[in-house]
Simulated assay, not measured.
Amino acid sequence: MAWLILIVAGVLEAVWASALSASNGFRRLGPTVLFVIALVLSMAGLAFAMTELPTGTAYAVWVGIGATLTLVWAMVTGKERASTARILLLLLLVACVVGLKVVS
């Protein structure tokens, strides 16, 4: 159960990071509200997962999921340039996250 919650928390990290960017310095209400809600839920999920998983592993997985999805979203929406090197590095990051799960 802790792993599932950690994965959801990692997805929510990507949501709050993207919403933070879209809030335009907290000047837009909708993205600002989404940022706050996703941030609180993401942190709560990470905190819960850390009660059952080692801190370093949980944090690395949470950051890895969030960073990967944030960059993928930015590439899909055209805010970041997609390249072969970036995609290969993201795949390597995902492989590392999966590896942490396998060895835990």
Rank of each mutant, 00 (worst) to 15 (best):
T32F: 05
V63D: 05
T84K: 11
A58F: 06
V103I: 15
T77V: 13
W62G: 02
V63Q: 04
W16N: 12
L89G: 05
L20Y: 08
L88W: 02
T57G: 05
G25A: 02
C96F: 13
V72I: 15
L90Y: 04
T55E: 10
L20W: 07
V33N: 07
G78W: 08
A38R: 11
L89H: 06
R27S: 15
A47M: 09
A9E: 02
A2Y: 12
L12S: 02
V8K: 04
G78R: 09
L41Q: 00
S21L: 04
F48K: 03
A19S: 15
L93R: 00
F26C: 08
A49E: 12
A49S: 15
N24H: 14
V103M: 12
S83A: 02
L89K: 02
Y59E: 07
M50C: 08
A14V: 11
V103K: 12
C96D: 07
A44Q: 11
R27H: 14
W16T: 12
L34E: 00
V76Q: 08
L34A: 13
C96S: 14
V11D: 03
W73S: 03
L88T: 08
N24F: 11
A67R: 02
M50Y: 00
L93E: 06
R86W: 01
I7E: 03
S21T: 04
T77R: 14
W16C: 11
V36E: 00
G56F: 01
G64W: 00
L41V: 00
Y59G: 07
L12R: 02
A58M: 10
C96Y: 12
R28D: 09
L92W: 06
S23G: 14
G10V: 02
V98G: 09
G64I: 00
V36L: 09
C96L: 14
V15Q: 07
A22E: 10
R86T: 03
A38W: 11
L4G: 13
G45V: 09
L91W: 10
I7G: 06
L90S: 05
G78A: 09
W62T: 01
L20A: 11
N24R: 13
F26K: 11
T68R: 03
A85R: 13
